[in-house]
Design a protein around this nucleic acid. Structure first.
Lengths: 209, 209, 209, 209
DNA sequence: AATGAATGAGATTTCATTCAT
DNA sequence: GATGAATGAAATCTCATTCAT
């Protein structure tokens, strides 16, 4: 079965090659400029061969997105083990998330900005009860619960806080990606300030006093 | 020179007509469905005439975006007159901004997500010193200054706070646009919670105590 | 309004040019080999210009067909005036029909062989009651009625006879078109034999004796 | 040489398999939807293997057509054995022919309407002397001869009559195929009337009296 | 100022076919 | 004998843009 395996690997590599090229084009020229032709040219194959590896353009796009959230989720959840204060964990998680996503800006943008049902099934988190369904938001929620464990705060408020943090962080990431030319230093300053200060201020629910 | 002026006015009217049509198409069908032909059909002129008033499609798009920022800025600053507490003003500004942008989601997305220099010239605000150059951010900054007028806080920290608020609000807006199917009620809940609570928490710089 | 008229004429000429080219291709290579590209190449224009004159391929095809039956109907009905015996008229009509259609084999084939609803609305005549709805078949029917005026024959039988004649003539025409290389002489022999003898034999309803 | 024979048989089986698949596709989706890939998928082989058994698509098509005529001829001639009057035999033959062809309408249409030399070699029958070369027409001719055995009719006239019958029947079949939506009942009525009455009228050469 | 004719490039997709293995 | 990778041509259609008038 060696030969079969090799072939499978080759296929996987080709698919990966295609997806990467697609990602690049999307980040360079925008989602709407992505075309089968362009991908083919980039990987120096004929356009038709792409249909060997994917059924159509949409399938390529869906896979670009999938690669997106898979990588991100694994990046975030891996850093979860540490036994420090929940506040510190929150800060660390936020930073990890930002750093992980900034390593793959193209996939992130495609995934987060797509309005297709397929994408939204993975990315939506604004609905009521999202903390119980969405793994990433759930991590955030657990953190907040730990932080508020001595206070009496309604679940709803905690969910809204978690969603607000998620939304804010998303905004930061998108803005950093779009403003691609702020220097490295300024980027770091903002990320640090945001995750080390803003996040903690957000957590600071005034009702708790 | 009356005739000259009249012509200029006519030209301006035609340009306005074109931009409005383009805006409508973008709102109705999305940015990628915008085409010269469609604009022409909508205003009942031939496609070629558009090239009398604009050099190419991109110029039209840039102007659509410009109209976008203008509308938004005026929406925000109009609410600026009230003589209430700076905190209340901040909350109100945020809400106004969110509501104004959600009325023109596609133009907003196009403008905010474009990486073109032309667009970034208007939309960028993460660089150091942005509060002095960007009108919208400047409003925010003034508000914060009022809030912190009795404390000693470095300008830098205030700028970073302003930028964080801007970034977070952006994230909220984008997310609401993308998750187009959360119901009206939940949308309101999140917007209210975010602008009435989260924003105020963010302002609450712990160093001030 | 001279200029407007001229333009209209030019458009009509161009449309005619396109339709003729399409007809030729269909007859040379078959309906399924017809392509926008081929038409364009034949008339030495770019493929896109065709969309100036027709909305899409289907519209071109429909017009090729329309040209088909229009010409034919006019060919047949024009020769209708003569005041000879009904038998002679029948023979003459058949001949006229055959000769007329053979002058435009391509259009005839497209129209008669298309299974599209649009086409069938014009070409179908096998259904019960067709003699009352289809002008061409009706002519045939009137002829038969004249022939049988002294006999007692049910309407149904006459209709079936008319349909049989129509069907048979159709078969002859198609076969002559497909077998494009039987010589002129043999073609004439068959046409004459068919219209002068076979048709009259068909009319010869044995029940009338 | 057993092995050689086995291989030949296998090849023949594979060719048969391919042709059957092609036939099915043509019946189900129409000639123009036939593609090498579809055939391959249907027989669960790779497209390339088809080129082991046939030189190209056209060869496959030609063979599909050949299978077509064979089936039809066998259908017609099988009914040939009965020892009834020649008239009855003629009627029966016609009916059998119509019924047999209507069971494979697409193959029939392809074959009968193709102007390719290859096809015409099998399908043409309008040329002078066709009754001596074309098996199917020859059957018809024999029938007519039997019918006219007591009369003095020139061979030529009989051939022309045979050709006329063939042509008329062809027209009927084509029309029934194209007008796919006349109901079953009306179809039967017409077929019966045509084969039981019209055919006999055609045979009724007036010179014989 | 305005139009309509025309083009060429590009979009996605399907297909017959070849070739190395 | 059989496969899968790969290609190039072709299909329909849309678009931004130019140009003569």
């Amino acid at each position: 079965m060696n030969i079969k395996k090799r072939r499978e690997r080759e296929i996987e590599e080709m698919r990966e090659l295609i997806l990467k090229a697609a990602s690049n084009i999307i980040s360079d020229e925008g989602l709407d400029k992505l075309s089968i032709r362009k991908i083919a040219k980039k990987i120096k194959y004929s356009p038709s061969i792409l249909y060997h590896y994917f059924n159509d353009k949409e399938e390529i796009l869906n896979n670009v997105m999938k690669r997106g959230y898979k990588k991100i989720i694994s990046a975030v959840s891996s850093a979860e083990l540490k036994d420090t204060s929940p506040e510190e964990r929150l800060v660390q998680m936020t930073k990890n998330y930002i750093i992980a996503t900034l390593k793959m800006p193209d996939e992130f943008m495609v995934a987060q900005l797509s309005k297709s049902e397929e994408a939204l099934r993975h990315t939506s988190f604004l609905f009521k009860g999202a903390v119980r369904e969405k793994p990433a938001l759930s991590l955030l929620y657990q953190c907040l619960k730990d932080i508020y464990k001595n206070e009496e705060i309604e679940e709803d408020r905690i969910e809204l806080t978690a969603q607000s943090i998620a939304v804010s962080t998303l905004g930061l990431i998108i803005k950093i990606i779009v403003e691609k030319d702020i220097g490295e230093e300024q980027k770091q300053r903002i990320i640090d300030f945001f995750s080390e200060e803003i996040i903690l201020r957000i957590v600071n629910d005034s009702r708790t006093k």
